[in-house]
């Protein structure tokens, strides 16, 4: 099921996702945070998710409301977050972008994402983070897009994972 949006609007939505991806890849925390709404939720479940599952019912890798997301970014910005000092070298590939719903300036999109990470903080191993991403985007008063929710369902969720201290 996908929603009908104009070609121009689709390009605008995709451009937003690519910008968000690039800012995350390059650890531009303040600019990334400027893209999110005041009620942003950021969820990385720790196992396969059943439709309608309540994120609060179990333990997640990340289950951030806006306040906790702010703490996460503040911690990264201290320069003393050893798990990201120096920051990981990151490159992510986004594909299979679909617009699932579009109503009243709010959009639900999904994509497939693979993040390539070299964890330069210690082991310098190449780590892969494949997953499916669901976004909820919303227009601000000035018409620009903001991200209100991002859920990353890792293919590897539920198996032991290495440090995940960058913005997924």
């Amino acid at each position: 099921m996908s929603a009908a949006v104009s070609e121009a609007e689709r390009r605008e939505l995709e451009a937003f996702l690519f910008l968000e991806a690039r800012l995350a890849d390059t650890s531009r925390y303040a600019e990334w945070e400027a893209l999110v709404t005041d009620d942003m939720s950021y969820w990385v479940p720790a196992g396969p998710v059943q439709p309608g599952a309540d994120p609060a019912a179990g333990l997640s890798y990340i289950n951030d409301n806006r306040a906790r997301l702010a703490t996460r970014i503040r911690q990264l910005q201290t320069g003393k977050r050893h798990a990201q000092t120096p920051v990981s070298r990151l490159a992510r590939s986004l594909s299979n972008i679909e617009v699932l719903a579009a109503t009243d300036g709010e959009y639900t999109l999904c994509a497939t994402q693979v993040v390539y990470e070299v964890a330069t903080q210690a082991s310098a191993r190449l780590q892969l983070w494949p997953g499916r991403v669901t976004y909820r985007l919303r227009r601000a008063e000035d018409g620009s897009l903001r991200m209100a929710a991002k859920t990353v369902e890792l293919v590897t969720a539920g198996e032991p994972l290495p440090n995940l201290a960058f913005l997924l």
Binding site: V44, N63, L168
Partner: peptide, 28 residues
């Protein structure tokens, strides 16, 4: 308790990843 746990423990929490980075540096 679940929310406290997510803040402290695991690969993406605010505490233990820094212990993990330190342990990996020790292993190196």
């Amino acid at each position: 308790i679940l929310r406290q746990s997510e803040a402290a423990m695991g690969p993406a929490a605010f505490i233990v990843p820094d212990d993990a980075a330190t342990a990996e540096r020790m292993q190196l």
